[in-house]
Amino acid sequence: MNKWIYLLAIALSLTSCIGTDVLEEEIFPERVQIVSSADTIKVGESFQFIALFFNTSGEMEDVALNWRSLDNSIIEINQNGLATAVNGGTTQLIVEANAVSDTALVTAGAATVSSTNTDARTGTFQGLNNYRVEGSFKMELLGESSVRLSFEDDFVASNGPGLFIYLTNNENSISGGIELGELKETRGAQFYDFDQADLFNVYSYVMVYCKPFGVPFGRGAFEN
């Protein structure tokens, strides 16, 4: 009988180790996005353009950006993204990183007018994988450096282990997204602040995600 007891012990030791799960690689197209821009710059003044680069993992990456203007006689821009209106007219500003680029059509005119969306972004949650996540949310800028994501009174989520809030551009996963913190309550109003105002217009979805087991419970798309 002893040998069978030993076999049981061996079976236990072979099966109960902590293994490793490898996430399937999600490939995103590289992109660079101008997140702070102007429609018009007053002649003689400057405006700070900001662009972010996202790699094939969908994550922000600090790479060298190349800024240029199609017509330097109208607007000049240096390699830090600082644009200066020289003479009246309209031209295109281009930012390039690796093999991708983004553009902004900018006028040198009578007043400086930012084109960056600073209005609150809103959306509504829907459940995923048979879990309940409902209610509306709003994201707004708090001054120049912070952002607040607020869930409204009608927010309801299924209970679950280790639920976290993410901003993401993938409707089914958090790849390339950012974590805002653990879900505070499964019902009612609550908010999540973060100090990356540059990211205010970057992400398309808010996701409620079971982090330890890797399951999305619900998401909401920004409607604006």
Binding site: S16, C17, I18, G19, T20, D21, V22, L23, E24, E25, S57, K211, P212, F213, G214
Partner: peptide
């Protein structure tokens, strides 16, 4: 004994520690 696997991305970078 209860276990939760370690999670890595495709490049081998740690996503979540096992426990």
């Amino acid at each position: 004994r209860s276990t939760l696997n370690r999670v890595e991305d495709a490049s081998g970078e740690l996503v979540q520690e096992g426990e």
